[in-house]
Every structure is written in C-alpha cells, then in structure tokens.
Deep mutational scan, measured.
Amino acid sequence: MKGKVVSYLAAKKYGFIQGDDGESYFLHFSELLDKKDEGKLVKGSMVHFDPTPTPKGLAAKAISLPLE
C-alpha cells in the first residue's frame, strides 16, 4: 500500500503514516527495509508498506521509500 508520513519522531524511532485507504498506521524504524532511508522519513514523504493489524491497532510493516 502507498501512504504519506504524517509524523516521525527520530529520537524515539516511531511515527505515523496515513494510508491511501485513509487509515492511520504506526510506523517504527525497525520496519524500514533500508535503514539509510531514515533521514527521508519526514512529514509528507511518500512510502510503500504492508498494512498489518496488531493487537494495538494498525501497523506499517516492510516500509520502503519510492525510487527517486
């Protein structure tokens, strides 16, 4: 699924993505496929991810940034 980063707290390594389906997904650095892309996780960045339901809500897994 595609989505847009709505927040990312680099110090805490987490944030949120708004998916194309309108839902909010929890984003964690550990799910970023290329850790070098962390600096690109800023508000408004477009990402691809696997939407995954968890006991705490919806989460983004296997997060990647589109090729530039």
Score class of each variant (00 low, 15 high):
residue 12 K to P: 03
residue 9 L to R: 12
residue 34 D to K: 06
residue 12 K to H: 09
residue 19 G to A: 05
residue 51 P to C: 05
residue 16 F to L: 06
residue 37 D to Y: 07
residue 15 G to L: 03
residue 67 L to S: 13
residue 27 L to H: 01
residue 21 D to H: 04
residue 68 E to H: 12
residue 38 E to R: 05
residue 47 V to D: 01
residue 38 E to F: 05
residue 24 S to R: 14
residue 38 E to Y: 05
residue 35 K to L: 07
residue 46 M to G: 06
residue 60 A to G: 04
residue 52 T to I: 13
residue 28 H to Y: 07
residue 62 A to S: 13
residue 67 L to C: 12
residue 11 A to E: 11
residue 61 K to S: 09
residue 68 E to N: 12
residue 28 H to N: 06
residue 18 Q to R: 14
residue 42 V to P: 02
residue 31 E to W: 07
residue 32 L to C: 03
residue 42 V to M: 11
residue 29 F to A: 11
residue 40 K to V: 05
residue 9 L to E: 12
residue 54 T to G: 09
residue 68 E to L: 12
residue 47 V to E: 01
residue 58 L to S: 05
residue 50 D to V: 15
residue 7 S to Y: 15
residue 22 G to T: 04
residue 28 H to I: 05
residue 34 D to M: 06
residue 3 G to A: 02
residue 56 K to Q: 10
residue 17 I to P: 01
residue 37 D to Q: 11
residue 43 K to P: 14
residue 27 L to I: 06
residue 22 G to K: 05
residue 41 L to G: 02
residue 19 G to M: 01
residue 45 S to K: 14
residue 51 P to N: 04
residue 12 K to A: 08
residue 4 K to Y: 14
residue 7 S to K: 14
residue 17 I to T: 01
residue 44 G to A: 04
residue 14 Y to I: 06
residue 5 V to N: 01
residue 13 K to Y: 04
residue 40 K to F: 09
residue 45 S to Q: 15
residue 39 G to N: 12
residue 66 P to A: 15
residue 5 V to L: 07
residue 10 A to F: 13
residue 1 M to S: 06
residue 39 G to I: 14
residue 48 H to C: 14
residue 58 L to A: 06
residue 2 K to W: 13
residue 1 M to C: 08
residue 10 A to R: 13
residue 9 L to S: 15
residue 54 T to M: 07
residue 66 P to Y: 15
residue 22 G to H: 06
residue 48 H to L: 15
residue 39 G to A: 14
residue 15 G to F: 03
residue 49 F to Y: 05
residue 32 L to T: 02
residue 66 P to E: 14
residue 35 K to R: 09
residue 12 K to S: 09
residue 65 L to Y: 05
residue 56 K to P: 03
residue 18 Q to P: 02
residue 15 G to V: 03
residue 41 L to Q: 00
residue 52 T to Y: 15
residue 15 G to A: 02
residue 33 L to C: 10
residue 60 A to Q: 01
residue 58 L to W: 12
residue 36 K to G: 12
residue 62 A to E: 06
residue 33 L to V: 13
residue 58 L to P: 10
residue 63 I to C: 04
residue 62 A to V: 06
residue 2 K to L: 10
residue 13 K to V: 02
residue 21 D to G: 04
residue 16 F to A: 04
residue 47 V to L: 05
residue 13 K to D: 02
residue 51 P to T: 06
residue 27 L to W: 04
residue 68 E to D: 13
residue 37 D to W: 08
residue 33 L to M: 10
residue 18 Q to N: 08
residue 10 A to G: 08
residue 48 H to Y: 15
residue 11 A to T: 12
residue 7 S to F: 15
residue 17 I to W: 01
residue 59 A to F: 10
residue 47 V to C: 03
residue 6 V to D: 06
residue 1 M to I: 10
residue 23 E to D: 06
residue 45 S to C: 15
